[in-house]
Amino acid sequence: MKAFFFLFALLFFLSPAKNAFFDEKCSKLNGRCTNYCQKNEELTALCQKTLKCCVIVQPCGIRTNDSAEDLGT
């Protein structure tokens, strides 16, 4: 019975740290956590509390400043 309470307390206190990991991952992908993704967004990861990490889809052929610098142009 002591082992049960110990495991319950351990899992209860570790869950907030685990949830923050998912939100941090989404912010690194430049996404946002929402209930559902819009038409111009794609699901890339999961956030806490069953939310989805949505990132805006970039059309082909459009380059950002970062990708142009990587190519040396």
Rank of each mutant, 00 (worst) to 15 (best):
Phe4Thr: 13
Leu11Cys: 08
Asn30Leu: 12
Glu24Met: 10
Glu42Trp: 03
Leu51Ile: 01
Phe8Cys: 04
Lys39Phe: 08
Gly61Tyr: 04
Thr64Ile: 13
Leu7Lys: 00
Asp66Asn: 10
Leu11Ser: 02
Arg32Asp: 06
Leu7Glu: 03
Phe6Ser: 01
Phe4Glu: 04
Phe13Met: 13
Lys2Cys: 06
Thr44Arg: 11
Glu42His: 03
Leu43Lys: 13
Pro16Asp: 12
Thr50Phe: 07
Lys49Phe: 14
Ala45Lys: 10
Glu24Arg: 15
Cys26Ala: 12
Pro59Gln: 07
Glu24Thr: 12
Ala68Arg: 12
Cys60Met: 14
Ala20Ile: 13
Gly31Gln: 05
Asn40Val: 11
Ala68Met: 12
Glu41Phe: 02
Asn30Ala: 04
Phe21Pro: 03
Thr50Arg: 10
Leu29Pro: 00
Val57Leu: 15
Lys2Leu: 14
Arg63Asp: 10
Asp23Ile: 13
Phe5Trp: 09
Lys28Glu: 11
Tyr36Ile: 10
Ile62Gly: 03
Cys53Val: 06
Ser67Ile: 08
Lys2Ser: 04
Asn40Thr: 08
Cys26Pro: 00
Ser15Gln: 08
Cys53Ile: 03
Cys53Trp: 02
Ser27Arg: 15
Phe13His: 14
Asn19Lys: 09
Leu51Ala: 08
Thr44Met: 12
Ala45Tyr: 06
Leu43Met: 01
Lys49Val: 03
Gln48Asp: 13
Pro59Phe: 03
Cys37Tyr: 02
Val55Pro: 00
Leu11Val: 04
Pro59Val: 03
Thr64Ser: 05
Glu41Met: 06
Cys26Trp: 05
Ala68Cys: 05
Phe22Gly: 01
Pro16Gly: 06
Lys2Ala: 11
Phe5Arg: 09
Lys18Met: 13
Val55Ile: 03
Cys60Val: 14
Thr44Ala: 12
Phe8Trp: 02
Lys49Gln: 08
Gln38Thr: 12
Cys53His: 03
Asp70Leu: 15
Gly61Ser: 08
Thr50Met: 05
Asp70Trp: 08
Leu14Cys: 03
Ser15Phe: 05
Gly61Val: 09
Phe5Leu: 13
Ala17Cys: 12
